[in-house]
Structures are given as C-alpha cells and as structure tokens.
Design a protein around this nucleic acid. Sequence first.
DNA 1: ATGAAAGCGCTAACAA
DNA 2: TTGTTAGCGCTTTCAT
Lengths: 313, 313
Amino acid sequence: MNNSKPVRPELRERVMKVVEETGFQPNAVARSLVNKETRIIGVMIPDISNNFYSNLIYGIDSVISEYDYSLFLAISDEVVEKELKFLRLFKEKQLDGVIMASIHFLEGHFQQLQEIQVPLVVTGHDLPGYNIPTVNINNVQASYDATAYLIAQGHQKIACISGPLWDPPCGLDRLGGYRKAMRAHGLDIHDGFMQEGEFTAKSGYEAMRKIWEESIRPTAVFVATDLMAVGVLNFLHDQGVRVPEDVSVMGFDDLEMASLTRPMLSTVHNDPYMYGRAAAEQILKQLRNEPVERMSIVPHDLVIRQSVCVIGK
Amino acid sequence: MNNSKPVRPELRERVMKVVEETGFQPNAVARSLVNKETRIIGVMIPDISNNFYSNLIYGIDSVISEYDYSLFLAISDEVVEKELKFLRLFKEKQLDGVIMASIHFLEGHFQQLQEIQVPLVVTGHDLPGYNIPTVNINNVQASYDATAYLIAQGHQKIACISGPLWDPPCGLDRLGGYRKAMRAHGLDIHDGFMQEGEFTAKSGYEAMRKIWEESIRPTAVFVATDLMAVGVLNFLHDQGVRVPEDVSVMGFDDLEMASLTRPMLSTVHNDPYMYGRAAAEQILKQLRNEPVERMSIVPHDLVIRQSVCVIGK
DNA sequence: ATGAAAGCGCTAACAA
DNA sequence: TTGTTAGCGCTTTCAT
C-alpha cells in the first residue's frame, strides 16, 4: 500500500515483512498502464555531441528530476524521418510530455503532432502562427545588442559571419539583428562583409578568409556562433593579425571554450541550461493543467572579455 | 495484427481501414507489460554537460537505435544516493539493459545490482574481481605511451598533472602509466613534479603554477586530461612561456578543443563515441543471450599536433 | 479496516 | 483462417 488508505500498523508490518522476504519490486510498467502516466518526458534534439544540447538536457533534467520525472532521449540527427518516427514513438510509449529542441518544423511535423496530441514545448525555434508553447532567446535583439556594442566601441567597418540561411535562428535572425543595428546607426555594409558559415570552426575560418580577401577590411567582426568565432580567431592568428588590436571579434553563445581561447572571446551569453529549465517548467505546467505562456523569452546578456577593443576615430 | 500470423488479404484491408478511421495508436506500455520487454536501455552518467559523456551517449544511441532500442537517461551528478535511486528506477521501469559510465562503485552499488538483476555494462572503470562486463581504455598503457613519446623526443625533466587520486582511471592509472614510463627509462621524478588536478581547466592552471614555482623546471608536462591541459597552456601563455619551444605539453582525451587551441594540443586520442558503441554492443549481446567479454579494451592512439617539440641533448 | 474483483491495452494460446 | 479468452502487475471500486 502506498499510503493511499489508512492501515492498521499491525497489518502494515506484516506486509512489510513479506516485502522484505520475497524481495518484492514494484513494476512501473503495470502501474503506468492503469494510471495512464509514465512520468517520463521525451526530449528530442538534433545532436547530442553539441555542447549546447547537452546543457539544454542538463537544464531539463535538473527541473523534472525534482518532480520525479525522468528523461527519454531521442537524437534525430536532423533526419526528418527519424523526427517523425520519434514523435510516434513518444506517443506509443505514452510519455507524459515532449520537448523538441531546434527541430526544423515542416508540414509533416504539425500533422503528426496533431495526431498524437501530447503535451509539447518547442525550444530554439519560434513558431509564429501556431498554438505551441515555445522557449527561446530573442536572437534578433541579441545580435542587435552585440553589433551595437561594437559600434559603441567606435567600430564602423563591421563584418558579420552568420549561420546558414536555412536556419532561422542562427542564419536569418542573427544576421537580421546585425543588419538592423547597422542600419539604425546609419552604417553601410560593404559587399562581401556578410558571409554565411555552417556552424563549424572550420567554416568560420573559411568565411573569415573570404572577408579578409575583400578590398576593404573590417575592424570588427560579429560571428553568429562561438564555434565559428574560434575559427575566425584561428584564421587571424595564422595570418599574424592581432586580436583585438587589429581586428575585434564578437561571438555568440558563450560556450565553455569562449573563456578558454586567447584572447578570451567577448560574446553573447546564451544559456542552454536556462532554456532547458524554462522548457521543463512549461511542460510541467501543462501536466498540471496550469496555463502556459505561448512564448517565453529567455534573457540574454553581453559578456565582455578581451577580443574587442575601442577604436579611435 | 503484427504479421504474427497469416491473414487473408481481405480481412487485413478491412482492419487497416478501421485503423485509419479510428486513428488507432498502439500502446507500448501495455505491450511491454505482456512481453516483459520495453526496448529501452538505461544510461547512467555523472555529468551530461561534459562533452565526453555526450559523445558516449551518441555512440550508445548510434548502435541501439539500429535495433529499435531507445535511450533512458539518468544523470547522477556523482551523488551516490541518486545513483542507487536510479538503479532501482531502472528496475521498476523494467528497462531491458543498463549502461553505467564512470560511476564510482561502492559496496551499496554491488548490493543494489545484485537485487535488481538487470543486464549491465560498465564503462570508464575497471571492476577487477567482479563478474560484470566492462568497456574501457587501458589508461596505464596509454599514459605510458604518451610519456614514452615525450621521452623519445629527448625530454627528461617531465612533470605530470594527474586527475584527482580518488578517481582510479584519471588519477591512479594515468599517473601510474607516467611513473612506469619514467622508471622504465631510468628517469628520476623531481619532487613537486607530480601534481593533482581536479579535471577543470582552472585546476590545470593552478597545478602548472605550482610546478613552475619549483626549483627545477620541467621541459615537458604530461597532463592527464585535455581540459586541464588547456589550463596549463593558458598559464604558460600568461607567463610568456612559449609552447612548445620552452615547454612541451601533452594532453589526454583528444577533446574537440584540443585541435582548437594555439598551439594545437598533442594528446592521447580517447574516443567516447567508440566506448559508447562498444558498451552498447555488449548490452545487446546480453539481451540476445550471446556470450559477452568480461572486459573489452578500446584501443587508444597518440595524436601528434604542435604542443610537443624535440629537445636537444 | 480489510479483502475481493474488475479492468487498463495488449499478446499468446486456444477453440471454432 | 478467424474469433475468443486468459492474464501480464497494478490501482480503484465495491463489498464485507
């Protein structure tokens, strides 16, 4: 008996003794079948080897484990069929809720979601027009702030290495914030100062090479992800260009490695752990039938280290 | 019907139509209850934000997902009570198998394991004297090889920053390999040349400071983890000491960041992804009642980059 | 306060 | 080949 009813102490003891003797172990599967509750949350991410997602998971786990929920992990590798398959699997396994991180939504996803009817929170993407709770940073604003900071340090010739354009958050939004800031301050963007990277350090390295081959050279670069920024730092290092004296570099994400580079990288603090916590809280609210916010914005801030310097007029 | 019996096509179609119409979704919980199989593997790790473990998970997932198993994740934070709790939970949830990574085993663990009787594989620790399948690198041999490599480059005054001594793999074993190599080559170890770090970059930084304050200075340092090695690199950088010209540095783990530092870190390649794959294969073997190896050693190799140089006599 | 019985959704064994 | 039934281990309801 799980304290669901009053029991005479005598009987209780007798039961406990038998439990001890027979080595009784409760079976959560049977319990789930009748309770219609597994106390398991499904989490779908594109890539576990990416530190961002592992910290997201850490955040999620840190709150759900408080409430005796556990974590079922699905790694989609960005393969649409797997994503759809996992969604079905989540339903079959009767998971109580689902958190999807940075999944590129297509028509099929919405359809599948419609069918399975499971409490859901999406993080890393905005879903304008859909009634699905999301948790995200304001990428446009954060990039705007980063660029504006560069401008405030006196920079005018500022380049930008964005994520791939098919990725709304790192491609579109972060590039958008940069452009918006440049425009707002009446600054021109030189042709070739906007390069598209592909998330890897190597792609940052190459993108910076392209920028460096332009007729005009920037005095500062805003890079949409830290990993690419490390590539930029390395390119500059290999060229014998000093950072920040010759070129300032501003990253985005504040990965662990951002404070381990020399010079240490100034960047936008983007806290996947907090995303995870926020997403988990939204899911838990749904499970308790409490009202949930349609979109939660997690705050960002600039972390100023060594890779940006003030420039004279 | 799941193709378990021959069915007349006509009936099959009729059933399929109803399935379509009613939007039938199978319930894996009920199925698990009767089949006594959940097709879920539990994975227990101390820390998900550590890139090592996320890649381990990636490796595990890459093989189990092939066989339609999924992943239940338990993050223990190195808290013994949580570890024990998760073990019980694994049993309650009737997971088909369990992989435990780098869990420091105590008496209670073996006892709990005894009670729950679940297919198990342990990785990251050797369990001499217990009949539990393990998957691990040969830490002693790998450290020996790394140190021997330093010696082969002409170094004789070699320091070592090990992991904490309470951690057998990174503390005892890796330090042991270093000492063994020094002894085998008839080299003395100066007092104060063996420092104990605590896994973090900062602790590597501090450990290197202590070594640097010794009366004699080493020409090379073997650091038991890359993260600490980055701390060492940074200390040396901050002191204006050139690597590798003044001091050579050898790491261990081959984290992603090892190839992103300047100079790029020479290190021992330690592939958590392969650990994961190997561990998963051992678990799968158990589930198929195939014989399993008592301990599988995953091979290591030296990756030579820029942080070690040849030294003259 | 305690015991007995029904039923969660499925599969396997049986009968038709 | 098809339909029926028992039972997996639990919780809940209903008698006792």
